[in-house]
Design a protein around this nucleic acid. Structure first.
Lengths: 343, 343
DNA sequence: AGGAAAATCCAAAGCGCTTTGGGGAGTGAT
DNA sequence: ATCACTCCCCAAAGCGCTTTGGATTTTCCT
């Protein structure tokens, strides 16, 4: 069923039917009702392609997920983020289109999306330090919003980020308050902007407590369970092992726990652990009582909000870009306790 | 830059330029080269919307991800599957469009995709027992392919599935061979087709070994870490506790391990564990040696293949639908060992 | 009742592409 | 020189919608 058929069926012009359906005022309420009813019974919805052609809008948002060709990891966060963003899109009648892309091809993909007029804007995932994508998109004139921020890009742009620095600052302070002095950091890849900021927060706390940075206590890598396990195992094997560990992801934290327990130590007593927790739907941090003391911020909620921000950036291009900084909450679980007494 | 401008620029008609770009024979090689060159320098690609309107194709595949409104869980598998499918799509010039949908709205969404002509076909995720979606899509005339199968639907349709029954049959047999007799099953929700089949395999092995099904040893729920933990904790607390546990997901298996160790038992000695492993990129089962003995099958590879199958279903609608059954491989790790001797 | 303003509705153009149905220019044979 | 083919190329229609610029009818004042 298309517009033409529907309008013939109703004995009206295409113009009137279109207007009735799109809420224009120059249609009598009675006609509008009649049209809406017919549309429903014939199960008519306008073709997105035709509509897009006519209006010049795509009514679609692109999400470009970079997958490094080297270590084919799909960000585990991405599912929940997408779910959040999807809620927003369907509320506003937008489509979400996804491209999984080797990060070497990113340039081609973005300019393709632009020149094919496939989307009205894009969300940038996993911003890195001095991320070249922001400049590219600015140059292409394709509206965008960033999940995170990109240190090194100076023009204003729309973003939503967790305050990673303050979260890790507070978490580290918390460990100091418990008496810990040797605190390790198991971080994400430090080309990632978020990891850089977390490290800054950590370093700031150490500085405030007059504890020098110790490279032996700082690891950075893709945040898998195995990475958390190996890093922890190695550090616990060294002399002067850490009494507390700060970890960038709940998944890695599971590995941290495994290494601790494998060594016959008790988490929360011999070694304290604080992790960041993205509140993923399939990986809750315990049920009633959190297992891990954590800095917590829902990535799904982030998806909802950032999508909303991008849409207003698109519909109101003159406004200055929206920006939002979320504070993570510190939830105390059973993975932390006072530093063990030295004997 | 659009076709008109490009053709004016070249002093050719739109027809010729379009034909040159789409590989039609009635264009001289010289002209074709000239056109291709110009398209590249002006960074021209045809508007998807216009092309779609003209050809009647969408050049897009829909993925509808159901999210139950009750327990807002996003399937952790979905990220890797999508990544695999995305590779296939970009190779064939298709777009992937994603809808995150409360499962109560599914009907509306699918018929919307159809009547808006937004996609050429869809992939069905997470098929349930007697899944109504297959009938609906058949009725709508929207091509589809299923990740898994739907028991209770009798018309032929395209699917790709892991042989869940045989995988869990072999895994259970393996545990019997190690001397276990009290074997528990921690399964996904049994409305899900895959969980039903796994249970069948498990039950078949028990029957073959003359061990009656014991409801106390069978749990089913959303496969979170917490679910694995609680189920195991409860079962280990009962008298006549299991000596081996079969688990439907690596994530739950992490919870299983936590419960075992919390009780001061050793996994692989006091309690053996076998889990299914979807080979998720962010959750590898150990590094060199697998942590868990597992039935393994890459969900990312499944995505790649199923997408390919859907595309051929679309381009060659007369052929009978493709179907593919993958066998999981049994990888022996350190989570299994001989059944403890009764004293 | 007469005229202006408001309320409804419509025909047709245009969005950017593909594709149909020709048409003119070379080429070789007669 | 003429004819019959190929080779290349083109004008124009059509895909399904929105939107412009009117046209027609109703309603409201005076």
């Amino acid at each position: 069923m298309n517009l033409k058929q529907l309008s013939q069926n109703l004995g009206l012009s295409q113009t009137t039917v279109s207007r009735a359906l799109n809420g224009y005022p120059e249609v009598s309420p009675a006609t509008r009702r009649r049209v809406e009813e017919a549309a429903r019974t014939f199960n008519y919805s306008p073709s997105t392609r035709a509509k897009g052609l006519a209006t010049g809008q795509a009514l679609a948002i692109g999400h470009v997920i970079p997958v490094s060709s080297k270590h084919e990891m799909v960000n585990p966060i991405f599912g929940d983020f997408i779910a959040g963003a999807g809620e927003t899109y369907s509320r506003h009648g937008y489509e979400m289109i996804l491209s999984i892309v080797d990060d070497a091809d990113e340039r081609r993909i973005y300019s393709g999306l632009k020149s094919r007029r496939a989307v009205d804007g894009v969300i940038i995932h996993g911003p890195r330090m001095n991320d070249p994508r922001l400049g590219l998109l600015h140059e292409l004139g394709l509206p965008f919003a960033v999940h995170g921020r990109a240190t090194g890009y100076d023009k204003p742009y729309a973003w939503l980020d967790v305050n990673n620095r303050s979260a890790f600052l507070r978490a580290t302070d918390f460990l100091f308050d418990l008496g810990h002095r040797r605190i390790a950091l198991i971080n994400g890849l430090e080309v990632m902007d978020f990891a850089h900021r977390r490290r800054e927060g950590y370093a700031e706390s150490l500085r405030a407590h007059d504890v020098p940075l110790d490279p032996h206590l700082m690891r950075s890598g893709e945040m898998t369970e195995v990475f958390g396990y190996q890093s922890t195992r190695d550090m616990l094997a060294e002399e002067n092992a850490p009494t507390a560990i700060l970890c960038s992801s709940l998944i890695s934290a599971l590995g941290v726990r495994r290494a601790i327990e494998e060594k016959g130590l008790v988490m929360g007593k011999d070694v304290s652990v604080v992790t960041h927790d993205d509140a993923l739907s399939y990986l809750q941090n315990g049920a009633d009582v959190p297992i891990f003391t954590a800095t917590r911020s829902s990535v799904r909620e982030a998806g909802r909000r950032l999508a909303e921000m991008l849409l207003t950036t698109i519909t109101e291009p003159t406004k200055p870009p929206l920006q939002q900084l979320l504070e993570a909450e510190l939830m105390v679980g059973s993975s932390t306790g006072p530093a063990p007494r030295k004997d």
